[in-house]
Each structure stands twice: as structure tokens, then as C-alpha cells.
Simulated scan of single mutants.
Amino acid sequence: MKQTLKSFFAAALVLAVAACNQPEKKDTATVTDTASAAISLDSTKFQKEIDGKKTNLYVLKNKNNMQAYFTNYGGRLVSLLVPDSAGKLVDVVVGFDSVEGFEKSTEPYFGATIGRYGNRIAKGKFKLDGKEYTLALNNGQNTLHGGKKGFQYVVWDAAQPDAQTLVLTYLSKDGEEGYPGNLNVKVTYSLTDDNELKMDYEATTDKKTLCNLTNHAFFNLNGEGSGTILDHKLQIFADQYTPVDTTLIPLGKNEAVKGTPFDFTQPETIGKRIEADNAQLKAGKGYDHNFVLNGTKVGSLNHAATVWGDKSGIVMDIYTQEPGLQFYSGNFMQGKNTFKGGAKDDFRTALALETQHFPDSPNQPAFPSTVLSPGQTYKTSSVYKFSAK
């Protein structure tokens, strides 16, 4: 009996010493996807000072273990873990493992909160009450997604009131990127127990201005690094789309999708017609167009689109109060950037579906207005809901 006790205490002592000699764990969050067994997001790589403000990494979790990772640098969605048809978590959003990765990326919009104006404004000019305003040009002869230093490059003030909510705020000062008025912006990202990522936008101004906010997450429902999105199926609840010129500025009228490669009124594989002999597809080098939503109501929101991941079984439904949806099929991805799992941003390996008002609305009187006046509150919501088949 004494010998047994001695052996027991000796073993316990060995275990205790071994435990004390274990290296200290870093502050990391584990992310899994289909291409890599495990990715560790080190929060210290998201801690930096930019323009005198501190950046960080924030995580939202729901009761189903779905997880959303954000950084307040650019208000970016870094990673989104969603259960697939087998219950395995898949990272369906592409991104980088550090703030530096987003800073140096040749594609500036990965996961970013976009403003003041999502999409393009022709020749960087618009008029309000007869006064012409000139914006910074950053997309050939046009302004894209707010200008050279749009909201994707600023550090937002962040507050996390609970485990499922992140509130980002930013003051865009009068004259920033050429836009008039001090614009106070608040974006609330929340992860519900119904596996919904909600995006609630608010803004007020002290001078008449433009406001058209969105999020530019790039999705691959099979997982970051899993290959092309051309075999995903897509349905867009829109009978019309907005044709554009060779600089992707609207021609001024909407056209029916019926009989064209833009007809996604029924589920269709994205790659089936993307190389069709079509002037609009050539202009966008694929799909990079606004779809005019039908107003298919689900509760208080319009059902904008449904996407199916062909390998994962993950389904993404998009609901919004916005009149349009920009579908971008990753046509300008060139394999120049390395994502958090080690994969390159190769051609058409992710897609964007941005809920928003139409491109160049300030110069297109027939389009829904994007003007925000003092005393008004810009307020809109979008939801990205996930399930698995």
C-alpha cells in the first residue's frame, strides 16, 4: 500500500512539473475551413496604432458555435465560421490574418464597411442644390467606394456590448474625400441564434450630402482556399439589372434580365454563362452589375438572393431594405495576395453580393435618391442568413 502511494505521488509530481514547463499560450482564436485543418488568428497581429487610433480583433459567437471575427480597421469582417451539412465549421469569408495584411492588399475592400458611397460615381462629380462637388478619383476616371481613403482605410471606434454584438462608429468630417457635411455613422453587426449576420446602418449629417453604405465581404461558401465560386448556384430576386458602359457607369436605364446571362430569377450555376458573348459581361470582365430587386418581402425585408455552396452544402440567404444588389464575381482577383489560410486570391475564388443603392445615383435622376439632409436619419438593414442542406 505504501509503495502504491509513493508511486502515485511520484507520478503526480512528474505531471505537475511537466505542466509548469509548458510554454505560455498566445492569445489566439482558432478558425477552421475546408482547405486547412486549423487557422489561428493571433489577436496581437490586429493590435496596431493607425492615424493615432488603436485597432483590434473582435469575435461574435452564437449558441450554435457560429463565429464572426471583425477588426475595426476598415470595419472589416475578417472571418465567418458557419456549420456545413456535416456540422463542420467552414470559414466562408476570405481575409487576412493581420491588420498589415489588409493594409498591404492590392484589393482594398476585403470584408470592409464601405462609405460614404458604395459603388461608382461618374467622373467623381455630382451636384447638390446647384453646387458641384468634386471627389477623389480612384477607379480610372471615376470614384469608387468612397474614394482614395474611403471607410475601408479608417479606424472605427468599437464597442462590444455583448458576445453577439459589435457597434462601430465613425465621424466622416466635412470635406473628407470631397463630400460635404460632417457625417456621423454607426454600424451595428450582430450574430443571432438563427445563424444570421445582421448589419444595421445609421447616419446623420449637418449638411446635405450623399450616403450609401454597405459591406464588401467576399464569400466562398465552400471555404477560403477551396477553389472557384463558378460552381456555386445563385438566385437573385430581380427581374431587371443595370447595364453599364466600359468604365462600369450605368447607361441610365434598367433592362430586363430575361433572355440574358443576367437571368438568375431561378437558381443557376454562376459559371454557366459567365463567358457568354455578351457586351455587358465583357464590360465587367464577368458579373459586376447592380440588380434591381423585386421587393420580394420576407417580414420587413426584401429577399435579395440565395447562394448554394456546391461542396459544403452551405446556403446563404440575403435580405435587405436596399433597392439594389451588386453582384461581383471576383473578376479582378489576380493571385497577388495570400489569405489567412495560405491560399492565394486567385481569379474568381470569391464573390461579393453588396446590398446598396444603385451606382452613380447622384447623376441619374431616374434612380432612387441617395441624398441625406440635416434632420434626417439614414437607416437601413441587411441580413445574411446561413443554413446547410
Rank of each mutant, 00 (worst) to 15 (best):
F8V: 15
F9D: 06
A10R: 15
V14M: 14
V14T: 15
L15F: 15
A18K: 09
C20L: 15
D27P: 04
A29F: 15
T30S: 13
V31D: 02
V31R: 00
T34L: 11
A38L: 11
A38D: 10
I39V: 15
D51W: 13
K54M: 13
Y58H: 05
Y58E: 05
L60A: 05
K61G: 11
K61P: 07
K63C: 09
N65H: 13
Q67I: 09
T71E: 08
R76A: 12
V78H: 03
P83G: 11
S85P: 11
A86V: 15
A86Y: 15
G87K: 14
L89V: 13
V90K: 00
V94F: 02
D97E: 11
G111Y: 00
T113V: 08
G115K: 01
R116H: 08
G118M: 03
K125G: 07
L128Y: 10
K131G: 11
L137K: 08
L144M: 13
G146P: 03
V154N: 03
V155T: 14
V155N: 06
A158G: 14
Q160A: 07
D162M: 05
L166G: 01
L166F: 06
L171A: 14
S172Q: 10
S172H: 03
K173V: 14
V185W: 00
V185G: 00
V185N: 00
T192Y: 02
E196T: 03
L197W: 02
L197A: 09
D206W: 14
T209G: 05
N212K: 07
H216Y: 02
A217I: 12
A217Q: 05
A217C: 13
E224C: 13
S226F: 09
G227L: 10
D231R: 06
L234K: 09
D245A: 02
P250S: 09
P250A: 07
K253F: 06
T260C: 00
P261S: 09
E268P: 06
I274M: 08
A276V: 07
A276M: 07
N278F: 00
K282M: 09
F291N: 03
G295C: 07
T296R: 12
S300W: 01
H303C: 01
T306I: 11
V307M: 11
V315N: 11
Q326K: 10
F327T: 01
Y328F: 13
G330A: 10
K340S: 06
G341C: 10
A352G: 10
E354T: 09
F358D: 00
S361Y: 02
S361M: 05
P362E: 04
N363L: 09
N363D: 02
N363W: 05
V371T: 13
V371F: 04
L372E: 00
S373G: 10
P374R: 14
Q376S: 04
K379F: 04
Y384C: 08
F386W: 08
S387K: 13
